[in-house]
């Protein structure tokens, strides 16, 4: 039967042995991190963004690299998902994007600070995370059934989908846009996108100040949704 001193040696020996292995692995990990996190891309702007990230305790609501709180979206791949432009608009006025929904604090960031936060998130998106977050694997079966008519313009795929759904994917803040071409003419859509408030005062739709070419692309595509 095990004696007390044997039990003590099991404890002391095991602890020393596994802590030594842990220190060795830490040494190796620290050697590999610079390449995996793309250290060369860590500009001063990225570092300033990281300080803002900490100073505002963004982790108190969001997760990043899957760590933080579960009240607001995971942000590891947010630049890929929404695009820099969307994030900038959102940071200027969080309520513009999700009116009447769960609220984010208005931090009154300067334009420079917004660029820093975006740079930080962009850098985070480039880290080799061993495949996190994984691409949804069960959604495909649903998407096949209601395929989008033609490929959406890039702007739609990053910014507009935050609120609008087409072919079953997108947000639920604004109305779904399937068949919008049947309901609105080209001229109406163009006027709506140029200045939503003028058409419908009090609407939750933000004025996105779109360049003519982007607006044109969007209108062309929306009209085709029938």
């Amino acid at each position: 039967m095990l004696s007390k001193s044997q039990a003590r040696w099991f404890f002391v020996g095991g602890t020393v042995f596994f802590f030594a292995i842990f220190l060795f692995l830490t040494f190796d990990t620290l050697r590999e991190i610079p390449a995996r996190q793309n250290s060369e891309a860590m500009t001063e702007s990225v570092v300033r963004g990281k300080h803002l990230w900490d100073a505002k305790n963004c982790m108190g609501c969001h997760t990043i690299l899957g760590e933080g709180a579960y009240y607001a979206p995971e942000l590891t791949r947010v630049v890929e998902r929404r695009g820099k432009e969307w994030i900038a608009i959102f940071l200027r006025d969080p309520e513009a994007m999700f009116p009447g929904q769960r609220r984010m604090t208005q931090y009154d960031f300067s334009e420079g600070e917004i660029q820093d936060v975006v740079a930080f998130l962009d850098w985070i998106g480039g880290i080799d995370t061993n495949g996190f977050p994984a691409t949804p694997d069960l959604g495909r079966a649903l998407v096949v059934a209601i395929e989008a008519p033609t490929t959406a313009p890039e702007y739609f795929g990053t910014v507009c989908v935050a609120c609008h759904t087409v072919a079953g994917s997108g947000g639920t803040v604004g109305p779904a846009l399937d068949g919008v071409g049947n309901r609105m003419t080209r001229a109406e859509l163009d006027r709506w996108l140029s200045d939503p408030q003028a058409v419908k005062p009090g609407t939750a739709m933000p004025n996105l100040s779109l360049p003519d070419t982007t607006r044109g692309e969007l209108v062309d595509w929306l009209v085709s949704l029938r």
Partner: peptide, 16 residues
């Protein structure tokens, strides 16, 4: 001690 590895899956640390 090495169970700490479950926090090191997806944060930019090596695959092992």
């Amino acid at each position: 001690i090495l169970g700490i590895g479950h926090h090191y899956y997806y944060i930019g640390t090596p695959e092992y």
